[in-house]
Design a protein around this nucleic acid. Structure first.
Lengths: 213, 213
DNA sequence: GTCTATATTATGATAGAC
DNA sequence: GTCTATCATAATATAGAC
Protein backbone atom coordinates (compact mmCIF):
# COMPACT_ATOMS: atom_id res chain seq x y z
CA UNK A 1 0.00 0.00 0.00
CA UNK A 2 1.36 3.37 -1.04
CA UNK A 3 -0.72 5.85 0.98
CA UNK A 4 -1.45 9.31 -0.38
CA UNK A 5 1.99 10.21 -1.74
CA UNK A 6 1.80 8.39 -5.04
CA UNK A 7 4.47 10.47 -6.79
CA UNK A 8 7.43 11.28 -4.52
CA UNK A 9 9.33 12.99 -7.28
CA UNK A 10 9.99 16.18 -5.34
CA UNK A 11 11.95 14.78 -2.45
CA UNK A 12 14.62 17.10 -1.22
CA UNK A 13 17.72 15.11 -2.00
CA UNK A 14 16.75 14.56 -5.61
CA UNK A 15 15.98 18.20 -6.20
CA UNK A 16 19.28 19.32 -4.71
CA UNK A 17 21.31 16.75 -6.59
CA UNK A 18 19.71 17.68 -9.87
CA UNK A 19 20.31 21.35 -9.17
CA UNK A 20 24.01 20.75 -8.51
CA UNK A 21 24.34 18.69 -11.64
CA UNK A 22 22.50 21.16 -13.86
CA UNK A 23 24.47 24.14 -12.61
CA UNK A 24 27.72 22.32 -13.29
CA UNK A 25 26.42 21.19 -16.67
CA UNK A 26 25.48 24.73 -17.62
CA UNK A 27 28.99 26.02 -17.02
CA UNK A 28 30.59 23.22 -18.97
CA UNK A 29 28.13 23.05 -21.84
CA UNK A 30 28.41 26.81 -22.28
CA UNK A 31 32.17 26.66 -22.22
CA UNK A 32 32.80 23.61 -24.36
CA UNK A 33 29.61 23.03 -26.30
CA UNK A 34 27.60 19.83 -26.35
CA UNK A 35 30.20 17.54 -27.86
CA UNK A 36 33.13 19.20 -26.13
CA UNK A 37 31.61 18.75 -22.69
CA UNK A 38 32.11 15.40 -21.04
CA UNK A 39 29.69 13.91 -18.58
CA UNK A 40 32.60 12.93 -16.35
CA UNK A 41 33.72 16.53 -16.16
CA UNK A 42 30.21 17.68 -15.31
CA UNK A 43 29.82 15.00 -12.67
CA UNK A 44 33.17 15.89 -11.13
CA UNK A 45 32.24 19.56 -10.87
CA UNK A 46 28.89 18.62 -9.34
CA UNK A 47 30.59 16.29 -6.88
CA UNK A 48 28.87 13.10 -8.01
CA UNK A 49 29.73 10.05 -10.08
CA UNK A 50 29.41 10.19 -13.84
CA UNK A 51 27.01 7.27 -13.89
CA UNK A 52 24.54 9.14 -11.73
CA UNK A 53 23.81 11.44 -14.62
CA UNK A 54 22.50 8.51 -16.61
CA UNK A 55 20.12 7.69 -13.81
CA UNK A 56 18.68 11.19 -13.57
CA UNK A 57 18.66 12.20 -17.22
CA UNK A 58 18.99 8.94 -19.10
CA UNK A 59 21.69 10.35 -21.37
CA UNK A 60 23.77 13.38 -22.24
CA UNK A 61 21.05 14.93 -24.38
CA UNK A 62 18.54 14.66 -21.56
CA UNK A 63 20.92 16.49 -19.26
CA UNK A 64 21.47 19.16 -21.90
CA UNK A 65 17.74 19.74 -22.22
CA UNK A 66 17.23 19.93 -18.47
CA UNK A 67 20.06 22.45 -18.32
CA UNK A 68 18.48 24.56 -21.05
CA UNK A 69 15.11 24.45 -19.29
CA UNK A 70 16.65 25.75 -16.10
CA UNK A 71 18.61 28.54 -17.80
CA UNK A 72 15.86 29.87 -20.02
CA UNK A 73 13.30 29.42 -17.26
CA UNK A 74 15.35 31.75 -15.08
CA UNK A 75 15.51 34.27 -17.90
CA UNK A 76 11.79 34.16 -18.52
CA UNK A 77 11.08 34.49 -14.81
CA UNK A 78 13.34 37.54 -14.66
CA UNK A 79 11.46 39.20 -17.49
CA UNK A 80 8.11 38.50 -15.86
CA UNK A 81 9.19 39.89 -12.51
CA UNK A 82 10.56 43.02 -14.12
CA UNK A 83 7.42 43.61 -16.12
CA UNK A 84 5.22 43.00 -13.08
CA UNK A 85 7.04 45.82 -11.34
CA UNK A 86 6.46 48.16 -14.27
CA UNK A 87 2.68 48.15 -14.44
CA UNK A 88 1.32 51.53 -15.47
CA UNK A 89 4.68 52.80 -16.75
CA UNK A 90 4.69 54.11 -20.34
CA UNK A 91 5.63 51.69 -23.09
CA UNK A 92 8.94 53.24 -24.10
CA UNK A 93 10.26 53.24 -20.54
CA UNK A 94 9.03 49.69 -20.05
CA UNK A 95 10.87 48.51 -23.15
CA UNK A 96 14.01 50.41 -22.24
CA UNK A 97 14.10 48.92 -18.76
CA UNK A 98 13.28 45.47 -20.04
CA UNK A 99 16.19 45.53 -22.48
CA UNK A 100 18.48 46.77 -19.73
CA UNK A 101 17.25 43.97 -17.50
CA UNK A 102 18.09 41.48 -20.22
CA UNK A 103 21.64 42.75 -20.45
CA UNK A 104 22.03 42.69 -16.67
CA UNK A 105 20.74 39.14 -16.67
CA UNK A 106 23.28 38.25 -19.34
CA UNK A 107 26.06 39.78 -17.31
CA UNK A 108 25.03 37.62 -14.36
CA UNK A 109 24.49 34.57 -16.56
CA UNK A 110 27.17 34.71 -19.24
CA UNK A 111 26.31 31.13 -20.08
CA UNK A 112 23.12 32.20 -21.82
CA UNK A 113 24.71 33.83 -24.85
CA UNK A 114 27.27 31.05 -25.20
CA UNK A 115 24.63 28.38 -24.90
CA UNK A 116 22.66 29.93 -27.75
CA UNK A 117 25.77 30.56 -29.79
CA UNK A 118 27.02 27.01 -29.37
CA UNK A 119 23.90 25.61 -30.98
CA UNK A 120 22.83 28.25 -33.48
CA UNK A 121 25.46 27.81 -36.15
CA UNK A 122 24.27 24.76 -38.02
CA UNK A 123 20.93 22.97 -38.33
CA UNK A 124 20.55 20.18 -35.82
CA UNK A 125 18.02 18.40 -33.69
CA UNK A 126 19.26 20.37 -30.70
CA UNK A 127 18.81 23.69 -32.47
CA UNK A 128 15.25 22.82 -33.44
CA UNK A 129 14.45 21.71 -29.94
CA UNK A 130 15.97 24.82 -28.36
CA UNK A 131 14.25 27.08 -30.85
CA UNK A 132 10.83 25.58 -30.30
CA UNK A 133 11.11 25.44 -26.54
CA UNK A 134 13.01 28.60 -25.66
CA UNK A 135 14.81 30.73 -28.23
CA UNK A 136 11.77 31.52 -30.35
CA UNK A 137 9.80 32.85 -27.40
CA UNK A 138 12.70 34.94 -26.16
CA UNK A 139 13.50 36.46 -29.56
CA UNK A 140 9.84 37.18 -30.30
CA UNK A 141 9.37 38.83 -26.94
CA UNK A 142 12.24 41.17 -27.66
CA UNK A 143 11.25 41.83 -31.27
CA UNK A 144 7.63 42.53 -30.29
CA UNK A 145 8.87 45.10 -27.81
CA UNK A 146 11.50 46.87 -29.89
CA UNK A 147 9.46 47.23 -33.08
CA UNK A 148 6.33 48.92 -31.69
CA UNK A 149 8.31 51.04 -29.27
CA UNK A 150 10.56 52.38 -32.02
CA UNK A 151 7.48 53.15 -34.08
CA UNK A 152 5.81 54.93 -31.17
CA UNK A 153 8.99 56.95 -30.63
CA UNK A 154 9.05 57.95 -34.27
CA UNK A 155 12.42 56.35 -34.92
CA UNK A 156 13.55 55.39 -38.41
CA UNK A 157 12.31 52.06 -39.75
CA UNK A 158 14.72 49.23 -39.14
CA UNK A 159 14.51 45.45 -39.41
CA UNK A 160 13.38 44.21 -35.98
CA UNK A 161 15.28 40.98 -36.43
CA UNK A 162 18.46 42.93 -37.01
CA UNK A 163 17.82 45.01 -33.92
CA UNK A 164 17.12 41.87 -31.93
CA UNK A 165 20.37 40.28 -33.05
CA UNK A 166 22.20 43.46 -32.17
CA UNK A 167 20.94 43.07 -28.62
CA UNK A 168 21.79 39.37 -28.53
CA UNK A 169 25.20 40.05 -30.02
CA UNK A 170 25.85 42.80 -27.52
CA UNK A 171 25.30 40.33 -24.70
CA UNK A 172 28.18 38.29 -26.06
CA UNK A 173 30.57 40.78 -24.45
CA UNK A 174 29.68 39.29 -21.08
CA UNK A 175 30.37 35.82 -22.38
CA UNK A 176 33.94 36.65 -23.31
CA UNK A 177 34.99 37.90 -19.94
CA UNK A 178 38.54 36.62 -20.09
CA UNK A 179 39.20 38.32 -23.40
CA UNK A 180 37.42 41.52 -22.39
CA UNK A 181 39.54 41.83 -19.29
CA UNK A 182 42.68 41.53 -21.37
CA UNK A 183 41.46 44.14 -23.81
CA UNK A 184 39.82 46.69 -21.54
CA UNK A 185 41.70 46.05 -18.32
CA UNK A 186 38.53 45.96 -16.28
CA UNK A 187 36.16 43.30 -15.00
CA UNK A 188 33.23 42.80 -17.30
CA UNK A 189 30.90 42.04 -14.43
CA UNK A 190 31.67 45.26 -12.56
CA UNK A 191 28.15 46.66 -12.00
CA UNK A 192 29.27 50.06 -13.24
CA UNK A 193 30.62 48.60 -16.48
CA UNK A 194 27.42 46.62 -16.96
CA UNK A 195 25.24 49.67 -16.38
CA UNK A 196 27.20 51.89 -18.74
CA UNK A 197 27.24 49.25 -21.43
CA UNK A 198 23.53 48.52 -21.05
CA UNK A 199 22.70 52.23 -21.30
CA UNK A 200 24.80 52.50 -24.44
CA UNK A 201 23.09 49.56 -26.10
CA UNK A 202 19.58 50.65 -25.17
CA UNK A 203 20.29 54.15 -26.39
CA UNK A 204 21.44 52.77 -29.72
CA UNK A 205 18.39 50.57 -30.09
CA UNK A 206 15.77 53.03 -28.87
CA UNK A 207 17.43 56.43 -28.93
CA UNK A 208 18.13 58.59 -25.90
CA UNK A 209 15.69 58.60 -22.96
CA UNK A 210 14.37 62.00 -24.02
CA UNK A 211 12.84 60.46 -27.13
CA UNK A 212 13.43 61.66 -30.67
CA UNK A 213 11.41 64.01 -32.84
CA UNK B 1 75.03 17.38 -52.71
CA UNK B 2 71.82 19.36 -52.54
CA UNK B 3 72.21 21.97 -55.31
CA UNK B 4 70.61 25.39 -54.93
CA UNK B 5 67.20 24.43 -53.53
CA UNK B 6 68.17 23.99 -49.90
CA UNK B 7 64.68 24.51 -48.45
CA UNK B 8 61.95 22.90 -50.54
CA UNK B 9 59.22 23.85 -48.09
CA UNK B 10 56.96 25.48 -50.66
CA UNK B 11 56.38 22.54 -52.94
CA UNK B 12 52.94 22.51 -54.46
CA UNK B 13 51.53 19.36 -52.97
CA UNK B 14 52.40 20.35 -49.42
CA UNK B 15 50.83 23.77 -49.78
CA UNK B 16 47.61 22.38 -51.23
CA UNK B 17 47.34 19.65 -48.63
CA UNK B 18 47.86 22.08 -45.80
CA UNK B 19 45.28 24.41 -47.27
CA UNK B 20 42.68 21.65 -47.48
CA UNK B 21 43.39 20.59 -43.94
CA UNK B 22 43.28 24.09 -42.51
CA UNK B 23 40.04 24.98 -44.26
CA UNK B 24 38.41 21.84 -42.91
CA UNK B 25 39.87 22.51 -39.49
CA UNK B 26 38.52 26.04 -39.47
CA UNK B 27 34.96 24.87 -40.05
CA UNK B 28 35.14 22.21 -37.41
CA UNK B 29 37.03 24.19 -34.77
CA UNK B 30 34.57 27.06 -35.20
CA UNK B 31 31.61 24.74 -34.91
CA UNK B 32 32.74 22.50 -32.09
CA UNK B 33 35.51 24.36 -30.32
CA UNK B 34 39.00 23.04 -29.70
CA UNK B 35 38.11 20.11 -27.47
CA UNK B 36 34.91 19.27 -29.32
CA UNK B 37 36.67 18.99 -32.65
CA UNK B 38 38.34 15.69 -33.40
CA UNK B 39 41.36 15.38 -35.63
CA UNK B 40 39.76 12.39 -37.37
CA UNK B 41 36.75 14.49 -38.28
CA UNK B 42 38.96 17.24 -39.65
CA UNK B 43 41.03 14.76 -41.62
CA UNK B 44 37.91 13.14 -43.06
CA UNK B 45 36.54 16.49 -44.24
CA UNK B 46 39.91 17.34 -45.76
CA UNK B 47 40.07 13.97 -47.47
CA UNK B 48 43.23 12.77 -45.79
CA UNK B 49 44.16 10.38 -43.02
CA UNK B 50 44.09 11.55 -39.43
CA UNK B 51 47.71 10.65 -38.91
CA UNK B 52 48.77 13.06 -41.62
CA UNK B 53 47.82 15.96 -39.38
CA UNK B 54 50.47 14.89 -36.92
CA UNK B 55 53.06 14.99 -39.64
CA UNK B 56 52.20 18.50 -40.78
CA UNK B 57 51.38 20.17 -37.48
CA UNK B 58 52.88 17.87 -34.86
CA UNK B 59 49.70 17.93 -32.77
CA UNK B 60 46.17 19.29 -32.47
CA UNK B 61 47.31 22.58 -30.96
CA UNK B 62 49.71 23.15 -33.84
CA UNK B 63 46.89 22.66 -36.31
CA UNK B 64 44.68 25.04 -34.33
CA UNK B 65 47.35 27.75 -34.45
CA UNK B 66 47.93 27.29 -38.17
CA UNK B 67 44.18 27.59 -38.68
CA UNK B 68 44.03 30.79 -36.66
CA UNK B 69 46.95 32.25 -38.60
CA UNK B 70 45.20 31.61 -41.89
CA UNK B 71 41.86 33.05 -40.73
CA UNK B 72 43.15 36.21 -39.12
CA UNK B 73 45.68 36.68 -41.87
CA UNK B 74 42.84 36.79 -44.39
CA UNK B 75 41.04 39.33 -42.23
CA UNK B 76 44.06 41.56 -41.90
CA UNK B 77 44.73 41.36 -45.63
CA UNK B 78 41.14 42.38 -46.32
CA UNK B 79 41.50 45.44 -44.12
CA UNK B 80 44.73 46.44 -45.79
CA UNK B 81 43.30 46.11 -49.28
CA UNK B 82 40.24 48.13 -48.36
CA UNK B 83 42.30 50.88 -46.79
CA UNK B 84 44.67 50.95 -49.76
CA UNK B 85 41.69 51.70 -51.97
CA UNK B 86 40.57 54.55 -49.74
CA UNK B 87 43.63 56.78 -49.87
CA UNK B 88 42.69 60.44 -49.77
CA UNK B 89 39.13 59.80 -48.58
CA UNK B 90 38.10 61.65 -45.41
CA UNK B 91 38.52 59.88 -42.09
CA UNK B 92 34.85 59.42 -41.24
CA UNK B 93 34.07 57.79 -44.57
CA UNK B 94 37.16 55.62 -44.30
CA UNK B 95 36.12 54.39 -40.89
CA UNK B 96 32.54 53.82 -41.96
CA UNK B 97 33.60 51.77 -44.98
CA UNK B 98 36.17 49.86 -42.99
CA UNK B 99 33.59 48.80 -40.41
CA UNK B 100 31.24 47.79 -43.18
CA UNK B 101 34.02 45.79 -44.78
CA UNK B 102 34.58 44.01 -41.50
CA UNK B 103 30.93 43.00 -41.31
CA UNK B 104 30.96 41.83 -44.91
CA UNK B 105 34.06 39.80 -44.18
CA UNK B 106 32.32 38.27 -41.17
CA UNK B 107 29.32 37.37 -43.29
CA UNK B 108 31.64 35.59 -45.72
CA UNK B 109 33.68 34.05 -42.90
CA UNK B 110 31.22 33.23 -40.13
CA UNK B 111 33.93 31.14 -38.53
CA UNK B 112 35.77 34.24 -37.36
CA UNK B 113 33.30 35.30 -34.68
CA UNK B 114 32.81 31.72 -33.51
CA UNK B 115 36.53 31.11 -33.36
CA UNK B 116 36.99 34.13 -31.12
CA UNK B 117 33.96 33.30 -29.04
CA UNK B 118 35.06 29.71 -28.51
CA UNK B 119 38.25 30.82 -26.88
CA UNK B 120 37.40 34.09 -25.14
CA UNK B 121 35.31 32.85 -22.26
CA UNK B 122 37.91 31.62 -19.81
CA UNK B 123 41.63 32.25 -19.36
CA UNK B 124 43.75 29.69 -21.15
CA UNK B 125 47.01 29.27 -23.00
CA UNK B 126 45.09 29.36 -26.26
CA UNK B 127 43.38 32.63 -25.37
CA UNK B 128 46.70 34.24 -24.49
CA UNK B 129 48.26 33.02 -27.71
CA UNK B 130 45.34 34.19 -29.84
CA UNK B 131 45.24 37.53 -28.09
CA UNK B 132 48.93 38.22 -28.53
CA UNK B 133 49.07 37.05 -32.13
CA UNK B 134 45.76 38.21 -33.58
CA UNK B 135 42.87 39.44 -31.44
CA UNK B 136 44.70 42.31 -29.84
CA UNK B 137 45.75 43.79 -33.15
CA UNK B 138 42.28 43.45 -34.62
CA UNK B 139 40.51 44.97 -31.63
CA UNK B 140 42.98 47.83 -31.36
CA UNK B 141 42.68 48.60 -35.04
CA UNK B 142 38.92 48.92 -34.66
CA UNK B 143 39.07 50.87 -31.41
CA UNK B 144 41.67 53.28 -32.80
CA UNK B 145 39.37 53.99 -35.70
CA UNK B 146 36.04 54.32 -33.91
CA UNK B 147 37.23 56.54 -31.07
CA UNK B 148 38.90 59.35 -33.05
CA UNK B 149 36.25 59.28 -35.76
CA UNK B 150 33.44 59.67 -33.24
CA UNK B 151 35.33 62.54 -31.67
CA UNK B 152 35.87 64.21 -35.03
CA UNK B 153 32.17 63.83 -35.79
CA UNK B 154 31.25 65.44 -32.49
CA UNK B 155 29.41 62.37 -31.21
CA UNK B 156 28.79 61.80 -27.52
CA UNK B 157 31.61 60.26 -25.51
CA UNK B 158 31.37 56.50 -25.26
CA UNK B 159 33.69 53.73 -24.14
CA UNK B 160 35.60 52.61 -27.24
CA UNK B 161 35.91 49.08 -25.90
CA UNK B 162 32.15 48.91 -25.55
CA UNK B 163 31.69 50.16 -29.07
CA UNK B 164 34.22 47.66 -30.32
CA UNK B 165 32.43 44.79 -28.62
CA UNK B 166 29.17 46.00 -30.07
CA UNK B 167 30.70 45.58 -33.51
CA UNK B 168 32.16 42.19 -32.66
CA UNK B 169 28.88 41.09 -31.13
CA UNK B 170 26.95 42.28 -34.15
CA UNK B 171 29.06 40.02 -36.33
CA UNK B 172 27.79 37.07 -34.31
CA UNK B 173 24.56 37.25 -36.28
CA UNK B 174 26.37 35.80 -39.25
CA UNK B 175 27.73 33.01 -37.13
CA UNK B 176 24.29 31.82 -36.14
CA UNK B 177 22.95 31.38 -39.62
CA UNK B 178 20.81 28.34 -38.90
CA UNK B 179 19.04 30.08 -36.05
CA UNK B 180 18.70 33.37 -37.92
CA UNK B 181 17.04 31.64 -40.83
CA UNK B 182 14.50 30.08 -38.49
CA UNK B 183 13.79 33.41 -36.84
CA UNK B 184 13.83 35.80 -39.75
CA UNK B 185 12.91 33.45 -42.59
CA UNK B 186 15.70 34.75 -44.79
CA UNK B 187 19.25 33.75 -45.58
CA UNK B 188 21.76 35.60 -43.47
CA UNK B 189 24.32 35.68 -46.27
CA UNK B 190 21.96 37.29 -48.77
CA UNK B 191 24.04 40.29 -49.91
CA UNK B 192 21.07 42.59 -49.41
CA UNK B 193 20.58 41.43 -45.84
CA UNK B 194 24.28 41.85 -45.16
CA UNK B 195 24.32 45.36 -46.62
CA UNK B 196 21.26 46.52 -44.68
CA UNK B 197 22.56 45.07 -41.45
CA UNK B 198 26.02 46.56 -41.94
CA UNK B 199 24.51 49.99 -42.64
CA UNK B 200 22.40 49.72 -39.50
CA UNK B 201 25.38 48.81 -37.33
CA UNK B 202 27.66 51.48 -38.74
CA UNK B 203 24.94 54.08 -38.34
CA UNK B 204 24.57 53.13 -34.70
CA UNK B 205 28.31 53.27 -34.07
CA UNK B 206 29.09 56.42 -36.03
CA UNK B 207 25.75 58.12 -36.65
CA UNK B 208 24.18 58.67 -40.05
CA UNK B 209 26.41 59.42 -43.07
CA UNK B 210 25.38 63.09 -42.93
CA UNK B 211 27.26 63.53 -39.66
CA UNK B 212 25.77 64.93 -36.49
CA UNK B 213 25.82 68.45 -35.05
C1' DG C 1 19.33 7.16 -5.19
C1' DT C 2 24.08 6.32 -5.38
C1' DC C 3 27.74 3.41 -5.89
C1' DT C 4 31.35 -0.16 -8.41
C1' DA C 5 32.43 -2.66 -12.35
C1' DT C 6 32.58 -2.97 -17.11
C1' DA C 7 31.35 -3.09 -22.20
C1' DT C 8 32.08 -0.48 -26.29
C1' DT C 9 33.55 3.00 -28.96
C1' DA C 10 36.28 7.16 -30.08
C1' DT C 11 40.09 9.91 -29.17
C1' DG C 12 45.21 11.96 -29.90
C1' DA C 13 49.62 10.48 -30.94
C1' DT C 14 53.47 7.36 -32.40
C1' DA C 15 56.18 3.78 -35.23
C1' DG C 16 57.42 2.19 -39.38
C1' DA C 17 56.51 0.63 -44.45
C1' DC C 18 56.65 2.67 -48.99
C1' DG D 1 54.62 13.07 -47.91
C1' DT D 2 51.19 9.70 -47.25
C1' DC D 3 49.84 5.40 -45.87
C1' DT D 4 48.73 1.09 -42.34
C1' DA D 5 48.95 -0.59 -37.86
C1' DT D 6 48.72 0.17 -33.13
C1' DC D 7 48.90 2.04 -28.32
C1' DA D 8 47.19 4.36 -24.23
C1' DT D 9 43.63 6.98 -22.75
C1' DA D 10 39.06 8.89 -22.31
C1' DA D 11 34.42 8.91 -23.86
C1' DT D 12 29.13 7.37 -23.16
C1' DA D 13 26.29 4.13 -21.44
C1' DT D 14 24.66 -0.21 -19.08
C1' DA D 15 24.29 -3.94 -15.34
C1' DG D 16 23.90 -4.93 -10.90
C1' DA D 17 25.21 -4.50 -5.71
C1' DC D 18 23.68 -1.95 -1.67
Amino acid sequence: MKDASEAPRFDVRTVRTREQIELAALEIFAELGFEGASTRQIAARAGVKQQLLSYHYKNKLGLWKATADRLFGACRERFEQRLAGLEGVDEATQTRLLLKEYLVFCSENPELARFMMQVGATPSERLSWLYEHHTRGLLELVANRIGPTRKALGLADADVHHLTYLLMGASAMFSQRAEYEMVAGQKVDDPDVVARFADLVVEMLLGGPEGVG
